[in-house]
């Protein structure tokens, strides 16, 4: 019975792998539900503050914050949000591909890039790429807190305020549904109205209580923080969904592999029994 033992051990090892992937799938599924809830909870605030900021960009404010004025791009800051752990399908790879494309476009225009990474995967990737990583946070866990994003946002916001970078982009995975996540590159600052001076009749400004500068800066900072936070929780939901799907297909693949091997094993066993029988019959006939 040649190879039967090897096949048996192979089946055993695949079965234990399947057990692991199944467990991971289940864990990811339950974590995904919680992550989705957190994502949904964070969405209204981020969306509303986006609205307010877009109103602000249409206003003719008496204080022109640097966050509202377009500058010539010499250096951009990227905040890349990735996962800490792997085994989540092509999630990070797709994100990095999209990032690289954008970076190449900037490079050809002679624009330099500073990167701030969130999550170990992005850090490893950009270090290997010899990218200019200026800040890094990782191990934020499955339930990132609002305070966690303050550090990286501050590094970038300071660089922007001091004129070291001329724009800040945020790169993260957008949660479309469980089956699909989309890499997204979004510009945080400067915030500018898409339609410029289309309606000159709308020259209006806010009434500020008390001080325009303070209020606008506060609003912009809140905006940055809440949008980055929302991206972070969204990315966690993406990670869990993507891992769940990847682990499910891994379990399924393991299942088909086991079936195939089982078939080969059974055939080998049958063949050896037939051969034995033939030998016995042959031996009896000779006597």
């Amino acid at each position: 019975m040649a190879g039967a033992k090897e096949i048996r051990t192979k089946i055993k090892s695949i079965k234990s792998t399947q057990k692991i992937t199944k467990a991971m799938e289940m864990v990811a599924a339950s974590k995904m539900r919680k992550a989705q809830e957190r994502m949904r909870a964070a969405r209204p605030y981020a969306n509303k503050i986006r609205n307010v900021i877009s109103h602000l960009s249409h206003a003719y404010t008496e204080y022109r914050s640097p966050g509202l004025v377009e500058r010539e791009l010499k250096r951009v800051g990227l905040i890349v949000i990735s996962t800490d752990r792997g085994l989540c399908g092509g999630l990070n790879t797709n994100l990095f591909k999209a990032t690289i494309n954008a970076m190449q476009q900037w490079r050809t225009q002679g624009i330099e890039i500073d990167v701030c990474t969130v999550g170990t995967k992005a850090f490893q990737f950009f270090r290997r790429l010899k990218g200019n990583v200026v800040a890094h946070v990782s191990h934020l866990g499955d339930a990132p807190r609002f305070e966690d994003v303050l550090g990286p946002v501050k590094v970038m916001a300071d660089a922007f305020a001091e004129g070291r970078v001329d724009a800040i982009y945020l790169v993260y995975n957008e949660f479309v549904n469980t089956m699909s996540q989309k890499p997204k590159i979004e510009r945080l600052v400067p915030v500018t109205a898409e339609v410029k001076d289309a309606a000159p009749a709308h020259h209006w400004d806010y009434i500020y209580e008390p001080d325009p500068k303070e209020l606008i800066e506060l609003l912009l900072r809140r905006y940055g923080e809440s949008v980055v936070y929302q991206a972070l929780v969204e990315n966690v939901a993406c990670e869990m969904a993507s891992r769940m799907v990847a682990m499910k297909s891994a379990s399924d693949n393991a299942g088909t592999l086991i079936d195939e091997l089982q078939l080969i094993y059974n055939k080998a066993r049958q063949a050896s029994i037939t051969q034995e029988l033939a030998e016995i019959v042959g031996g009896a006939a000779a006597v």
Binding site: A59, W204, I207, Y208, E209, P210, P212, L215, L218
Partner: peptide, 19 residues
């Protein structure tokens, strides 16, 4: 409760930003 005092806002209020 605005920082500078209570605010009552009716429709068609002018644009305003406050803490």
């Amino acid at each position: 409760p605005g920082e500078m005092g209570e605010l009552g806002i009716l429709p068609r209020h002018s644009q305003l930003l406050t803490r």
